[in-house]
């Protein structure tokens, strides 16, 4: 697809959608959002790039191989469940919380965040590997 307008807008869309997807991911615990939705939004951002510039460009912008991203996501999700097994009480995937105050704002940080990030990566990696494969026209050997 060689539309000039699409090309011009793609970078803008891409940046906006990617930031939006991370925002969605991070706020997921208290507002609508979360790893699944954020991941799908992030994948959409790359889908726009794929449609506009082709799979190899999107792959370059992703930096990391999508299948590897999938694996990283799974590892994150599994890691987030490990602390209880290492003598912190509870069974696998019992999440731990750290509650503190920074500058008068109460902050809740938990291992759930790592789990959600894992979900995010798996979804992004999963969708993108399908997408890249299907849009891979073979024009440029990216070595993958």
């Amino acid at each position: 697809m060689n539309s000039v307008i699409l090309h011009a807008l793609t970078r803008l869309f891409f940046a906006a959608m990617l930031i939006f997807s991370i925002f969605i991911l991070l706020r997921g615990h208290n507002e609508p959002g979360g790893g699944f939705i954020g991941g799908l939004a992030g994948a959409s951002a790359y889908a726009v790039v794929t449609m506009a510039f082709g799979a190899h460009v999107a792959q370059r912008w992703l930096i990391i191989h999508p299948v590897v991203l999938c694996g990283v996501g799974l590892v994150c999700a599994i890691l987030s469940g490990l602390p209880p097994l290492m003598g912190m009480g509870g069974s696998f995937l019992t999440h731990l919380w750290w509650i503190g105050e920074i500058g008068g704002v109460e902050l809740h940080l938990g291992t759930t965040l790592l789990f959600d990030i894992g979900v995010y990566f798996v979804v992004v990696g999963g969708v993108l590997s399908m997408l890249f494969r299907l849009y891979d026209t073979g024009e440029e050997e990216a070595g993958w």
Binding site: L74, F115, V119
Partner: peptide
């Protein structure tokens, strides 16, 4: 967590979700 749906996904039924993302992978 205030978003109950997400809390169910990542906390109460996290093992389920782990299995599901494994299916995706």
């Amino acid at each position: 967590g205030r978003n109950v749906v997400n809390v169910i996904l990542v906390d109460f039924r996290a093992l389920d979700t782990l299995g599901e993302i494994a299916v995706v992978a």
